[in-house]
Design a protein around this nucleic acid. Structure first.
Lengths: 325, 325
DNA sequence: CTGAAAGCGCTAACAA
DNA sequence: TTGTTAGCGCTTTCAG
């Protein structure tokens, strides 16, 4: 910094002001300093800056799983909004294991970001409290509502209702849901489905599954061996829907000719030409944007918790059709 | 730190030694200090530590795209190996755009990790030099070989040869490759394919495509309208293969009855029950592990570049079969 | 806009 | 094994 000051013929304090984008520097000085900095290959040392200022201008994001497009969208939303707010973003992954999540959060906390967003973390509630006590925190897709932190969730009940509405409008009445057990969002989707069916005077058929192909495949086997198999299956998510479709195809059942299938999440695989799955799109990018904004507010001083509920949309593709005559 | 020292009744220096896992501290003092630290909720301030020590014990990873399982595996390998080496990992994404990559690398550089991994970065070669001059760097899946940095690549030619060997052993002779143009790895795969075909006395059919569904779909349309359409198609990657399969299915061509299709990368979508694609698996997790290890060596003082070439494997699923009679 | 001075929380010699 | 003493590179405050 001294070198830059010398090179530009100004004081160290001025260089500091320029590097911090202070408004009270003349344009002339600013360009001069910037030029010198560039020429000397000077890059402010964040550690020193953080140490002195107590701020990082960085937000940390813990993603339960890098392998899930659902989180990729969330990450993108956070990054986009953070850039607009002049902040940087660092990511860690929990690799789908709770121990991994803990380590990931620890890494984040070690680097002391100004705020963190927890993507569908499956850690215990009191750990959430611990974390929120240390740094501004927003939890995404976590339905517990501790008042110490903000949350952003999807309106799962509304999504389930969209699915039921779509299927009934196609004439389906025997509709089955393969759920996600107690995995995050699972209970909400199941409840939403049951309500939506009941509201239309239909009996909800629910089988236990999970957010993966195998569990859904197995549930599908049971489902199709019922005396009166359903004419439509609403799977826990896209991956589960893929498992169902694979099973139906293997057993010579036409999709959507004989049975309609709906997924959830609108991940890349749903859009694949070879699958083309009707599904429910969650606004994860928006969730990411909102998370960043909530964090910025928190950092700015807000101290009451906010809880957001986002509305999903139905994306109709080729795996749903009129009920067979 | 002072508080902890006071609480434990020792010197600040001792606390520092304990926090750094120094071997020359008595077990008695260590447990005492650790207990106090825990009780007081003390967490060493990394900024101060980094500033004073000049080290972060962190490695940064730039992934071109969070949405690609190919990178997720790489990330996992890096993380796993880093943990074993007592280091932490921070990720950024380039969101598939060059400007994004630059920003992502900048964020990483700002936090001054001990080393960085560049996952299939598409930035210019001289930028690589710039970066490698600032910090220990390893480039993954980048075939330029500047001696200032280590590289880890997949043996694309070998992978292409595996595909050709598999298809010819099934009796195919009219085999087409939809390539990835000049995208990373594309030229290598194309060349490997041509060599493998030529080595077996077969004429290589090559159409230009890219690493996405649409480009492959379009190429497939052209390919199938040839006077003598191929009996097997080797796509640039799994996504491209999905585009090909969608087109074939839409036009009533049976896979693999009429035409066999092979992908590349063995991403999740290849394993999907609804697709079940024969593909080439790249050892990306291993690539991640090797990257970390190379970095650790570099940080440890090695100053000659190492370049690694990893061997892919063929994964046979349901989209390839004997040539139609 | 400048210059000086204090200090962020820690590490790294060195001496005790 | 412990205590002491300098910094690490920056921000912040304040008077000019």
């Amino acid at each position: 910094m001294d070198d830059v000051a010398k090179h530009a013929g100004v004081s160290r304090a001025l260089v500091s002001l320029v590097m911090r984008d202070s408004p009270r520097v003349s344009d002339h000085s600013r360009t001069k300093v910037l030029a010198s900095a560039n020429e000397l290959g000077y890059r402010p040392n964040v550690w020193a800056r953080n140490l002195a200022s107590g701020q990082t201008n960085t937000i940390g994001v813990m993603l339960n799983d890098f392998n899930n497009p659902y989180f990729a969208e969330l990450a993108y939303g956070v990054a986009e909004s953070a850039t607009e707010n002049g902040m940087e973003v660092l990511f860690t992954s929990g690799w789908q294991r709770e121990a991994g999540e803990l380590a990931a959060i620890d890494t984040l906390l070690n680097h002391r970001p100004d705020g963190i967003v927890l993507g569908a973390a499956r850690i215990a509630d009191d750990l959430f409290f611990d974390i929120a006590a240390q740094v501004a925190t927003v939890a995404v897709s976590n339905f517990s509502r501790p008042d110490s932190m903000d949350t952003v969730c999807n309106d799962e009940a509304f999504g389930a209702d969209l699915v039921v509405e779509h299927l009934t409008s196609l004439g389906h009445t025997r509709i089955a849901h393969i759920d996600a057990g107690s995995s995050p969002g699972g209970p909400q989707r199941r409840r939403g489905f049951s309500h939506a069916m009941a509201a239309r005077g239909l009996a909800p058929i629910v089988f236990e599954g999970d957010y993966n192909e195998q569990a859904a495949h197995d549930a599908s086997v049971q489902l199709m061996s019922l005396k009166e198999p359903p004419s439509a299956i609403f799977a826990a998510n896209d991956l589960a829907a893929s498992g169902v479709i694979a099973h139906l195809r293997d057993t010579g059942v036409s999709v959507p000719g004989d049975v309609s299938v709906v997924g959830y999440d609108d991940t890349v695989l749903a859009g694949l030409g070879a699958i083309s799955l009707t599904t429910v799109a969650q606004p994860m990018k928006l969730a990411g944007r909102r998370s960043t904004e909530l964090l910025v507010e928190r950092i700015g001083g807000r101290d009451v918790a906010k809880h957001e509920l986002l509305r999903p949309e139905l994306v109709v593709r080729s795996t749903t059709g009129p009920v067979a005559q």
